[in-house]
Design a protein around this nucleic acid. Structure first.
Lengths: 192, 192
DNA sequence: CAATAATCACTACAAATGTAGAGTTTCGAT
DNA sequence: ATCGAAACTCTACATTTGTAGTGATTATTG
């Protein structure tokens, strides 16, 4: 059935994302993906014979997940802004960014791995672009919320800032930033 | 001769760092390192039989290079502060951070690769710590310069911020930040 | 139910990789 | 000059990986 196919495909792509986060790019092999997904050997080869295609589709899948998470976030925030005002929303924005560093640790690490891979392989450059766009969305939302659209720093740079903090935390190189610290940085992006 | 030995070892470690930046962690093989260093096959195997040791030593070598670059930077800056005052120095600090993103692109990418690897492999955790310390030094210097030691954000977080911007630029995901933008962010780290 | 196609599972194999060890060269001390 | 050791190079091999292909199973259609 079509759902069966889609289930297996997504199970494999989820497994690849998990492998990227846990074992790195070199940890992604057809056999490892089979095992991680709990499917018999050969499954990944069947659905994605070429490894480039496997990575490409995993990246697309990851981008979709990121965008879905972002949509959820925006819906949740509409309420906060409406009921508690903008100032509270800004703190919650910082909070949201930090939460995504915890919950989305896997997604973050997988995305960084793929971004690095895309920066090297010509064949994956479009994938890098796709991920970059997906990663920009929540940041764009938060930064616009905080600065009211008058941010003085390009949105890509804002993504870099936030990603850098998240990556630092995700790789265990430093303490988890506090809400106050992040919102300080967020506010600094506005013209004063 | 002893110099011969040291030359070959460092040539190999330099090659590994270059490979890390250009091909990623999975691009680092004994044979690839031989070729990159322009040495006959088997050389890397001879000096670093175990791959873990190869990576570990490459990380240590990278840390040394980072620290050396940092020392040069600090010496150069002592002059600027003395002759042109603090305000000029702050702009030059932002400029310096940006310059290191260009000149040090290889070092940055190699460091990120190793940091990610260290975050996964238990055996490399000390390496991650070593690199983290080395990366912190120049940031510490600049941030202290800008904030006068009254930075409101932990130093590790500052490293994350700067690394994130540099990585964004190094992976071609966004425009090179301007001096004004970086110094804006730098200044935001102070208590006001 | 039959048969035909789609889906899946397994085997096979060439290339690459980590690693060991056997040769070979270089070089200093006697 | 010769010996011995250190430094180096090369070959070999088991393992892993990408990928193709072949057989088995399931679903679908007439």
């Amino acid at each position: 059935m079509s759902t069966q196919v889609k289930d297996r495909r997504t199970a494999i792509l989820d497994a690849v994302i998990q492998l990227l986060a846990e074992k790195g790019l070199s940890g992604v092999t057809h056999r490892a993906a089979d095992m991680q997904a709990g499917l018999p050997q050969g499954s990944t080869t069947y659905y994605f014979p070429k490894k480039t295609a496997l990575l490409r589709e995993a990246a697309a899948h990851l981008a979709l997940e990121l965008e879905k998470d972002c949509d959820d976030l925006q819906i949740a925030f509409a309420d906060v802004v409406a009921k508690q005002g903008m100032e509270a929303a800004i703190d919650r924005a910082a909070q949201g960014l930090l939460a995504s560093a915890d919950k989305g640790r896997e997604l973050l690490l997988a995305r960084i791995e793929l971004t690095l891979a895309a920066a090297r392989d010509e064949d994956l450059s479009d994938v890098g672009e796709r991920l970059s766009v997906a990663a920009r969305r929540p940041i764009e939302f938060f930064v616009n919320l905080v600065t009211g659209g008058r941010n003085t720093v390009p949105m890509e740079t804002c993504v870099g800032l936030i990603d850098g903090i998240a990556l630092m935390y995700a790789t265990g190189q430093g303490p988890k930033p506090t809400v106050a610290q992040v919102s300080t940085v967020l506010r600094s992006l506005t013209i004063d």
